[in-house]
Simulated scan of single mutants.
Amino acid sequence: MIKENIADIIKERIRISDETQDNWDYGIEQCWKKYVDILSADIEKSTDFFLHDCTNEEFYWLSEAFEEIADNTQSQELISAWRSRLAAVTSQNYCQENFISTEMRQQVDYPEYVRSIEQEINYAEGRIDK
């Protein structure tokens, strides 16, 4: 269930971003809210999604909401899942030319992908009360 819902929201998020060239568009904020709500609702299912069903492109877009998800869930388990998921992305299985998003195809090479997501994970981890 998470996979289908997230896939639809990410497609909408990409469509809005590609059409408006504005990552602060109101429609994008609504997409963020939807996937934050879904991924904050059940940590076990969300962890499973990230480790087994999330595509590289979905993972990139979802990372922009990691801080809010971590703040909502206070889950170190999710942080660990995100780190494991990122470690599974290698330069060999990163197929930039296959992404749906024009922005990702043109601007997000493998080093940028890793840097960006790693930064989002680190920020998210800082939101967890220890």
Rank of each mutant, 00 (worst) to 15 (best):
M1L: 08
M1F: 08
I2P: 12
I2E: 06
E4Y: 09
E4M: 11
N5T: 05
I6V: 12
A7V: 07
A7E: 14
I9K: 05
I9E: 04
I9W: 03
I9H: 02
I10R: 06
I10Y: 02
I10F: 01
E12N: 13
I14V: 14
I14C: 10
I16D: 08
I16A: 10
S17D: 08
D18H: 04
D18K: 04
E19L: 13
E19S: 09
T20W: 00
D22R: 03
W24T: 12
W24P: 03
D25L: 00
Y26W: 10
G27E: 10
G27Y: 00
I28A: 11
I28L: 09
Q30C: 06
C31K: 00
C31H: 01
C31A: 15
W32G: 06
W32R: 09
K33R: 08
K33H: 05
K34F: 04
K34H: 13
K34W: 01
V36G: 07
D37V: 12
I38M: 10
L39M: 07
L39D: 02
S40W: 07
S40F: 11
S40L: 12
A41H: 14
A41P: 05
A41S: 15
D42V: 00
D42T: 01
I43A: 10
E44L: 06
K45T: 05
K45F: 00
S46L: 02
T47D: 11
T47C: 15
D48Q: 12
F49Q: 03
F50W: 01
F50H: 03
F50D: 11
F50Y: 09
H52G: 09
H52K: 09
D53S: 12
C54V: 08
C54S: 10
N56S: 08
E57N: 05
E57P: 12
E57K: 05
F59I: 07
F59C: 14
Y60C: 07
L62Q: 03
L62K: 02
S63V: 12
E64I: 03
E64D: 13
A65F: 08
A65V: 04
E67G: 11
D71H: 03
N72T: 05
N72D: 14
N72H: 03
Q74C: 00
Q74T: 04
Q74P: 05
S75Q: 05
S75T: 11
Q76T: 12
E77L: 07
A81L: 03
W82V: 02
W82A: 00
R83H: 02
S84E: 14
S84T: 12
L86S: 01
L86K: 04
A87S: 15
A87P: 07
V89H: 06
S91P: 15
S91W: 03
Q92M: 13
Y94L: 13
Y94Q: 11
C95I: 11
C95D: 11
Q96W: 04
S101T: 02
S101D: 00
S101E: 02
T102F: 07
E103V: 05
E103R: 06
M104D: 04
M104K: 04
Q107E: 12
V108G: 07
Y110G: 08
P111W: 09
E112L: 05
E112A: 10
Y113Q: 14
Y113T: 06
V114Y: 01
V114C: 07
S116Q: 11
S116I: 00
E118Q: 08
E118A: 09
Q119P: 02
Q119Y: 12
I121G: 01
N122V: 01
Y123Q: 07
A124G: 09
E125T: 01
G126Y: 02
K130C: 14
